[in-house]
Write a protein that binds this DNA or RNA. Structure first.
Lengths: 156, 156
DNA sequence: CTATTCCGTCAACCACGTTGACTATCGTAC
DNA sequence: GTACGATAGTCAACGTGGTTGACGGAATAG
């Protein structure tokens, strides 16, 4: 089991390791650029909030977690200064969750650093190999694995 | 940022999605085969315990977490019947952590299901593409991302 | 006007991780 | 032989990221 002739764990382990490598590198660089408190999960949350803002319930749906979990995550990001809550004038039940300037800065830097990291992969593997990995993964990943498909944010 | 012409988040997101796809499929199948309580993290722990058994401190080192965290994880897996603790006759401080027959069964089935899933990827993408993904990832992942390299268990 | 649905929140709980402190034991140096 | 430092396991407190259930207030469908 999981010996060289029976491939076993290699593929999933490598996918996870590849992801972790990218994310570890990202956060090391983000810490250097003034965002040491940004954790891996926060990036997805900021992406899901988006430039237009959203509500906690909607955020939960986009991230595939309960509205309560989304609310607690927003609490933490508000405490860290990345998000703010404002009352919705049109609906007194709702509280809009919006990015602060610090949030926008973190997201901008994340995207820039990810681009650099992808460039590093391209330099080592070649553009066609990186594109092939992305193509192949796209073919194997069912659409609903990421309920988080904010249009225009993931290049897909 | 992260628009189609600036690749941004696509690669890391796809790596994570690929991993999640495989792991979700694995656990759906494991649940069907009598292991509904096995969670993603447990597979790594059982791998790290290995056929020979180990101690909580050593386990923590292999998994890259504190000995306390490893101990708590062992507690849960003991409660679920996958691991057992036995006193080390040679050293009264130590408590050997060993797999039960249920643990061995879960690990065997995990490896078998992963093999099947890899076959499914091979059927869709072709053997050379899957091998290319694994090759490329191996080249990009630093050796220390997985402190968990039990010889003979990961085919690498 | 009323019934229902929706939004945010509170509370309790679980999984998984951290640090710090503590006991018991082992190995060694004296 | 004993004293001492290193090691193994555990306990407590805490943080983060999730869950479910319950609840009050606001919007909306009838």
């Amino acid at each position: 089991m999981a010996t060289p002739d029976r491939p076993g764990f290699a593929l999933p382990l490598l996918l996870l390791a590849g992801f972790r490598t990218l994310v570890d590198d990202l956060h090391a660089e983000l810490a250097r650029q003034g965002h040491p408190e940004l954790r891996p999960a926060h990036g997805f949350v900021l992406q899901a909030v988006g430039p237009a803002g959203t509500t906690a319930s909607d955020l939960g749906q986009r991230l595939g977690v309960s509205k309560q979990a989304a609310g607690k995550t927003v609490d933490r990001l508000v405490a860290l200064g990345y998000l703010e809550r404002v009352d919705d004038p049109a609906d007194a039940r709702r509280k809009l969750v919006r990015m602060t300037e610090k949030g926008r800065d973190g997201l901008r830097r994340s995207a820039a650093v990810f681009d650099q990291l992808r460039d590093r992969w391209t330099a080592t593997l070649g553009a066609d190999r990186v594109a092939a990995i992305e193509d192949d993964l796209r073919r194997m990943v069912p659409a609903d694995v990421f309920r988080l498909d904010v249009p225009g944010w993931f290049g897909g």
